[in-house]
Design a protein around this nucleic acid. Structure first.
Lengths: 188, 188
DNA sequence: CTTCTCATGTTAGCCACTAACATTCTGTCC
DNA sequence: GGACAGAATGTTAGTGGCTAACATGAGAAG
């Protein structure tokens, strides 16, 4: 069966990601070398890069969903671009489950504390942003307004993620809700 | 006089930045090597890095102003965090002159077309964002809301910059106004 | 058992970036 | 004008992220 080889691949990938996370927590992202991650996972540097396109991607496993763009499109076309984007995010978020375990939180925490990684997160969002903009423009929104709305909403989302990772006093959903409400006076 | 040495330093710096911009336009950012930039400027690779902390910084000369944070603080404390941030940006922007020459536009154009550089622009904004957040939190705003508002406003600002660089049909001020209005229904 | 495939290893190299030390150039002070 | 101090640049020798080309080894399939 092909399943066994795929299983092996997935296990290797997971092992690399786990070891990377631990090392990053212990010594910091920048002071950790890809060679160290590889060694800790019992693997070659080359293999790390075959599973993760860059060192940063060791922290950005999570697939960022195009579900969001669709949800934005679902909002009433009479609403302002910002209201549609906020509404879309709220709707998309309601469908996603609260993350299990603490892996996500540990990853986000590391990202939140490093300017370069925060920036890298934006590169990771680029595709989502494009999809939202595309959706809004398709429905007649001015491109500039569409980009502004999409960027603003993603900025709020990232603020929520980072703040949630830093403190233990909110669930992720709560943080996202508060952040989005800040952009949308009707609810805040 | 010390002025002559400083003048020399500035001239070298300017020469490097100019040559870099031309090369980036001709061959693209990633396909241009720092060694090429150095050679074009009649200088060593080492010298390039003494003037610019990284290859990216060759495009981010412009000092991002803490004026913005102060302007945010000037807005009525009764307003919502988002309204204060938007108002602050509007006020700060009104003080700054429309950029002369086409250098700024050419730089932004290159940044706008490259995901990595767009991300790098966020790292460049990190300090501004921190200052805005600090200002809002100091005035009693919840940290999460402060971060969301600051991020949203900067996202809108960047959308304006990128859209302005791409097309010739707006002035920068107009683009910024439209982008900020998108976050602020009172004006949009 | 052989053959094909896919994960992994090996080697060699590019490029951004840094550190340590050497050089040249500028302005100053006598 | 000549010795000196300091700043700008050059040289050399790395480290670390990342890629390309080819080699090996272990499972699946006939």
């Amino acid at each position: 069966m092909r399943t066994e080889q795929q299983g092996k691949r997935e296990r290797t990938r997971a092992r690399i990601a786990e070891n990377a996370l631990e090392l990053f927590e212990r010594q910091g992202f920048e002071r950790t070398t890809v060679a160290q991650v590889a060694a800790a996972a019992g693997v070659t540097e080359m293999t790390v890069f075959r599973h993760f396109s860059s060192k940063e991607q060791l922290l950005f496993d999570d697939p960022y969903d195009p579900v969001i763009a669709a949800a934005v499109g679902d909002q009433p076309r009479a609403w302002s671009p910002l209201a549609r984007a906020v509404g879309g995010l709220r709707q998309a978020w309601a469908q996603l489950p609260e993350p299990e375990g603490d892996t996500v939180r540990r990853r986000v925490r590391i990202v939140a504390e490093n300017d370069s990684l925060r920036a890298a997160a934006w590169r990771n969002n680029a595709e989502t942003e494009r999809l939202i903009v595309e959706r809004l423009v398709h429905d007649g929104t001015d491109p500039l307004r569409a980009r502004a709305a999409a960027g603003a909403v993603l900025a709020a989302l990232m603020a929520a993620l980072f703040e949630w990772a830093r403190h233990d006093d909110h669930t992720l959903s709560e943080a996202v809700t508060v952040a989005l409400d800040t952009l949308d006076e009707n609810h805040g």
